[in-house]
Nucleic acid binder design. Structure first.
Lengths: 351, 351
DNA sequence: GGGTTAATTTAAAACGTTATAAACATAAGC
DNA sequence: GCTTATGTTTATAACGTTTTAAATTAACCC
């Protein structure tokens, strides 16, 4: 019996035209292993060989098979973002995603969307992603002070970045907008305009940003020693119609506010409409300062003063930080970022 | 030399705790192949065996390794959506994505986002996705009458669904909103209110929906035999500020329009503001009919009449049709869908 | 010129799955 | 008791990559 072994199937009959490492190996007359190492620029491979292999790869239009890499290495090269349904307004989700995608541009990472469907809880989605290794890292928003998702992720040492801080004792990667300073400065502006009684339409209190806004607002009104009000029954998550009605109703009761601190553009528009229902004019009988995340409000209602939050930039930071975290960074100073509202305040970003 | 072969590594020492087919095989005392077939409910496997294997799988929390499946079968189980940067407003992208994700719920498909970064052309992104087999199917919006992306995809027989129709001679899968009927009925409403000269703020003409809107508008004004105007210099893609300024400027010139057909909520708000700059009141000196895609406009300005387009439902249809297409459906009647504006018009959906 | 070391390349195995073809019982036909 | 059929299970190979360990070549030293 002949002992001569035929070489394994040579790269002639592939199932599709797509070039693989073997294609390059056949052309270069080298082994598949060598090609693999050359392309990952392993210094153990001769400098010249590496160059030649790179050139052939470029020429045949090689790009590595993600499934094979993932199977072998256990890394998915995927970043997942948990999308919430009430983020559909004014492009919050899309802006953040564009930013993340921009930060991922030029890397091997792809962005996949895990929408939070009504009947799935958030924590289930997180569990699912971890258990099935759907991604190498995760992005979440709407963090709660003692967010159970964050706890779970940290327990499993799974890389993630939150948009928003928590109050958990163990530090974790985050990117956040300084909503305290935003609310503080916004409220001070209302008071500086000579308004007597500013009112707050707050974020939902179960989320961190809600209490940051509240805290900023309260600090400003206490410093000024003026009257204030926290509008009851509604928050930023309520539909515009509900906010509008509530504001109008409030005005018809005793001692109404004459200034509003709004955490979002929709909220500001709804407030203006509610006041207008009562015959009041913005800039005359009352003022508003709002957070701006798109170009809509300032174009429609320039009389609303705004403080800008750049969500696309936020997304870029999130993407960059998540990459750092995945590649092993543990120094929290490198993994946390607090974005300060822009001028006329303390301009620029940085922790 | 002994000819006895040791059985291949048994599933005792895995690299992680994650159960695989081998885990189940070891427990059941069957071969890996059998498990694979049993789980795919292959009738060649004994009914009882199938049941037993399913139970074990459930018990150990098995879920198949997507990378391995993908490597073996060549199918990615991924749907990609091409995201455009100007879709960031009012949650267009997020709504569509939620809808698609809902249609994908319960299947093995994941949704990945391919953002169209400024320096990448759309056609490059399509090419990239096809060449690298990044997905089994693609979703695109903002179709042009002779969309080169659609041509390319059809040439390669790559499954896709567009949001919007083309005028290409070869039919292809799409989901579209009937913008002709929308514009026609909207314009008729303006005329029915006794308005003398309706004006159109059109979509960008390079896109199919722009010309559908124009056509609907023109049909209505010609039937009525009334004066009309197509506002020059701006379209729906312009920022709210630009639309506002243009509308105000136009009003100060000769023979201004007294009614507006707006293709979007932002456009309607900008128009109202522009007119308000000239001291005019909606519902008194002029009227607007607009397309509604969120709850914002109707809450803020109930005096604007709207016709609703449900983008999440659109996304669901897109998802369902793409699945059909991927699983081999070729009957175009099953793969095309035109959504008709809701009551008081011809209500309901259907081609 | 044998022995050691360094530089470079390579063979073989493995990741978890599925497709192909073969093996194994059991029953039926004559 | 031999084939033929049928129902059920299995071994083997393959998808394209990376990792481990081994092989090959070149260079250098006494």
């Amino acid at each position: 019996m002949s002992r001569i072994t035929m070489p394994p199937t040579t790269g002639v009959t592939r199932r599709s035209g797509k070039p693989t490492l073997r294609t390059i190996a056949d052309i270069a007359g080298l082994a598949v292993t060598t090609i693999s190492r050359a392309l990952s620029d392993d210094p153990v491979i001769n400098q010249e060989t590496r160059k030649r292999v790179r050139e052939i790869a470029l020429q045949v239009g090689y790009s590595p098979d993600r499934a094979a890499q993932r199977l072998k290495t256990g890394r998915t090269n995927v970043i997942a973002i948990l999308l919430e349904s009430h983020e559909e307004i004014l492009g919050y989700g899309t802006s953040i995603m564009s930013g993340i995608a921009a930060a991922l541009q030029g890397t091997t990472y792809h962005l996949i969307v895990m929408p939070n469907l009504p009947h799935t809880t958030n924590i289930e989605a997180v569990n699912y992603i971890m258990r099935n290794h759907m991604a190498d890292g995760l992005v979440m928003s709407r963090t709660e002070p003692f967010d159970p998702r964050v706890r779970l992720l940290m327990e499993h040492n799974f890389p993630f970045v939150t948009h928003g801080r928590t109050e958990l004792s163990t530090p974790h990667p985050y990117v956040d907008y300084d909503n305290f300073t935003f609310a503080y400065e916004a409220t001070k502006r209302l008071i500086a305009k000579g308004r007597r009684k500013p009112a707050l339409i707050s974020g939902p209190m179960q989320f961190s940003f809600g209490s940051h806004i509240l805290h900023g607002f309260m600090t400003a009104v206490r410093e000024a020693g003026c009257a204030y009000e926290i509008i009851s029954e509604i928050d930023l998550d309520h539909p515009a119609g509900a906010i509008r009605d509530r504001i109008a109703r409030r005005h018809r009761e005793a001692d109404p506010p004459d200034a509003f601190m709004c955490g979002g553009e929709v909220c500001a528009l709804a407030t203006i409409t509610g006041m207008s229902d009562c015959g009041l004019t913005l800039g005359v009988e009352y003022d508003i300062v709002a957070k701006q995340t798109s170009q809509l409000l300032s174009a429609i209602q320039p009389k609303v003063e705004t403080i800008y939050e750049d969500l696309t930039a936020t997304g870029e930071h999130i993407g960059r930080i998540l990459r750092k975290r995945i590649s092993g960074e543990t120094d929290m100073d490198q993994l946390q970022m607090l974005l300060t509202p822009q001028p006329p305040f303390s301009g620029g970003a940085g922790k």
